[in-house]
Amino acid sequence: MPALLPVAEAQQHLFALATPLPEELRPLAQAAGYYAARNVAALRTQPASDLSSMDGYAIRFADLPGPWQVIGESAAGRGFAGEVAPGQAVRIFTGAPLPPGADTVLIQEEAERDGARLTLTGEGPLRLGGSVRPRGLDFAEGEMIIAAGTRITPARLALAAIAGHTELPVRRRVRVALLSTGDELAPPGAPLGPDQIPETNRLLLAALLADLPVELIDLGILPDDRAALEAAFRALDCDLLVTTGGASVGDHDLVRPALEAAGADIDFWKVAVRPGKPMMAGRLGDALVLGLPGNPVSAFVTATLFVRPLIARLAGAADPLPRPRIVPLGEALPATGPRADYLRAELIDGRAHAATIQDSSMLRTLARATCLIVRPAGAPEAKTGDSAEILDIA
Rank of each mutant, 00 (worst) to 15 (best):
G182V: 11
P213N: 03
L236V: 08
R156Q: 00
E230W: 01
A111H: 08
A206Y: 05
I217Q: 12
A158M: 11
L208R: 13
A155E: 14
A227L: 13
R175Y: 02
A147D: 07
T166W: 00
F139C: 00
L185P: 01
A140P: 00
R127A: 15
P169M: 05
L168V: 04
A158W: 01
V176Q: 03
P198H: 15
A140K: 12
L208W: 12
A190Q: 13
D225R: 05
L222F: 14
L126S: 11
A210F: 06
L126P: 10
P154K: 04
E112W: 10
A163N: 05
L118W: 12
G182W: 04
T200S: 15
P154E: 01
I145D: 00
A231L: 10
N201I: 09
L120G: 00
P169T: 06
L208N: 02
A231R: 15
G129M: 11
A210N: 13
I107W: 01
R175T: 13
I146A: 01
R234G: 08
I146E: 03
G142W: 10
R234N: 06
L168P: 07
M144T: 14
V170N: 02
L178H: 03
L204Y: 05
D225T: 02
L219H: 07
E230N: 08
E215G: 05
P198Y: 15
A147H: 07
P188L: 10
L216R: 11
D211F: 02
T181D: 05
I217A: 07
V170M: 02
R202A: 13
G136D: 11
E109T: 14
G124W: 11
I217C: 09
L120V: 05
R173G: 09
A161Y: 00
A206K: 09
G115N: 06
A111L: 09
V174Q: 08
Q108T: 09
L236T: 10
I221C: 09
R175S: 11
H165T: 02
P223T: 11
L126Q: 14
L203Q: 14
L128V: 04
G122D: 10
R202C: 12
I217W: 00
I107R: 14
L229P: 01
L205E: 07
A231N: 13
I162C: 04
P188V: 15
E110W: 06
D114Q: 15
G164Y: 07
L216P: 11
P134C: 02
A235G: 09
A206F: 00
P188I: 07
G182L: 10
L137M: 09
L203A: 14
L222K: 14
P188N: 03
H165C: 10
G164M: 02
G115Q: 07
A235E: 13
R172G: 14
G129I: 11
E199W: 05
G142I: 10
V174Y: 04
R135M: 12
L229D: 02
P213F: 06
P134G: 09
A163V: 04
E143I: 07
I146P: 00
L178I: 02
P198V: 10
